[in-house]
Design a binder for these strands. Structure first.
Lengths: 278, 278
DNA sequence: GTGATTTTGGAATTTTTATTCTAATTTACT
DNA sequence: AGTAAATTAGAATAAAAATTCCAAAATCAC
């Protein structure tokens, strides 16, 4: 009538739930497997049965039985679960969009649904991958700057202009290098200043050049870019990578903007704290 | 005599450095591998050559060559590097969020967590509450316009400038009314044009006035605003309301931006369909 | 254009890894 | 203690994955 098994868990959370629930009735060797997995869940995604078995101090066959006992068809099946949980969410919207178009369902509302999901996933990926220590560094540099220079063209410009708005609102001196009149504002870059340089593939050369000039002049740089191979990543700078998801030929900006908001507000808080703390 | 290769990178950072340095000289297929790995480093740790090759759109043998070109003995060798580095950033979104929040009040990490949540929720609300019929109307008006006028100041400006970028990319005539030189561009507003007016509390008067002028001149208006009590809601316009969530004194922009993306892409699709359908 | 050189895709091969099977051992029960 | 049932370990097998190799195609140099 009763008994466990049946279907395998579909999420890692359900997997743990299962372990908690009927993990106690397990025989010794399977128990060891359960304990090991519970203690080192991150290993499961990147190890072989042999390695896990060894680490749990059981023979490989015992580990296999453990997987099957939990309802999986085998180790590979169980591993798949952990691998999916581990990797970021990058659905392929390009094919989804063409599918929409081909079926004639590419209504504005359907497009919005796709962009909405992409934006949410982008932000989620950002939260998962961001390095808190780097964020602190970035904020420290910006908070000490006399003037903050904001550089970002084309797709990055909305982010730069948001930062300009945000800093202005908090009374923090910031200059948006918008290229109006094709004026070069290089000479404004002075030691003691800082720059937020924002650029995404295909990397507008103006942005890269201005950032390089800033580097030469000893201006502290926070680089906000998409890939480790970006030209901005070459600079001696605090490098913040923003994982944005493509939707067909377009790309979400939500993650970059979310990061920009957090950074600017953190800089404001840092400055205020510093002033009061004196 | 020759060079490059030699030893394989010993850290992921060194690996990226290598890609930045001589990634440009790589032949096409190997380039694809490099690009894919740079964009999805987390996949490398948990995928097979076959899977990665497929995702990078190259045959498996090309991926092998890529690994060897970088100095690794093979794929397994390269994978080892990524596995070592990535076991740490394992937790899922919910866990990660809690961890970020726990890093202390007003720390950059905690702020990011707040903005991330606000952004995600804003987007979700948007997708849930948007009126599909209104969206269709908005897209229809914009798709028929000769020129699209984009108006948005202060907090709304990033949205307007993103739209300008997006329309330009699709070859759709659009003018960003940015107020440079304090020039009034009223006289550009002509019957047959359309306007996207964007404004959030406290509603910059410039935006409202320009939108009113557009109304007088018989220009079709799509109003993107926050509340039904907004001055823009008084206009004879297609009114799209964007529900943004506050984070302290700040407010997410993710929903507005997501809506802007969807609308601009839908307009592009509508125009293309119309042209071909003729 | 012609030949030399590089790059490519796919099939063949080797290695690694997962999985099954069975005899031996342990445990539970009377 | 004796028997039945459950559990185990390790060897055998099957499956999947990595890696190599080579002929065809593309690119380059002249």
């Amino acid at each position: 009538m009763d008994h466990d098994d049946a279907g395998a868990p579909h999420t890692v959370e359900a997997f743990y739930e299962r372990l908690r629930h009927d993990g106690h009735g397990l025989p010794k060797r399977l128990r060891q497997c359960a304990d090991y997995v519970a203690a080192h869940p991150d290993k499961v995604a990147v190890s072989t049965v042999a390695e896990l078995a060894e680490a749990a101090d059981v023979p490989p066959s015992a580990f296999m039985r453990f997987c099957q006992e939990l309802g999986f068809s085998g180790f590979s099946h169980m591993q798949k679960l952990f691998r999916e949980e581990y990797t970021q969410k990058w659905p392929n919207y390009a094919t989804r969009l063409t599918k929409l178009r081909d079926s004639g369902n590419d209504t504005p509302a359907a497009l919005l649904a796709e962009f909405a999901e992409a934006g949410r996933n982008s932000i989620e990926n950002l939260a998962r991958t961001v390095d808190a220590a780097l964020l602190d560094e970035a904020v420290a540099i910006l908070a000490q700057a006399r003037t903050i220079h904001l550089v970002g063209n084309r797709r990055a410009f909305p982010v730069a202009s948001y930062l300009a708005y945000s800093f202005e609102k908090m009374g923090i001196p910031a200059i948006l290098h918008s290229g109006v009149g094709n004026l070069k504002l290089d000479h404004l870059l002075a030691r003691g200043d800082a720059m937020i340089a924002i650029s995404f593939a295909p990397y507008a050369s103006d942005t890269v050049e201005l950032a390089e000039e800033a580097e030469r002049r000893g201006v502290g740089i926070v680089a906000l870019t998409d890939l480790p191979t970006s030209p901005l990543a070459r600079l001696d700078a605090v490098r913040l990578f923003v994982p944005e998801i493509d939707v067909g030929a377009f790309r979400s900006l939500s993650a970059a903007l979310t990061l920009a908001m957090a950074v600017s507000v953190a800089v404001g808080a840092h400055r205020r704290r510093h002033k009061n703390g004196k």
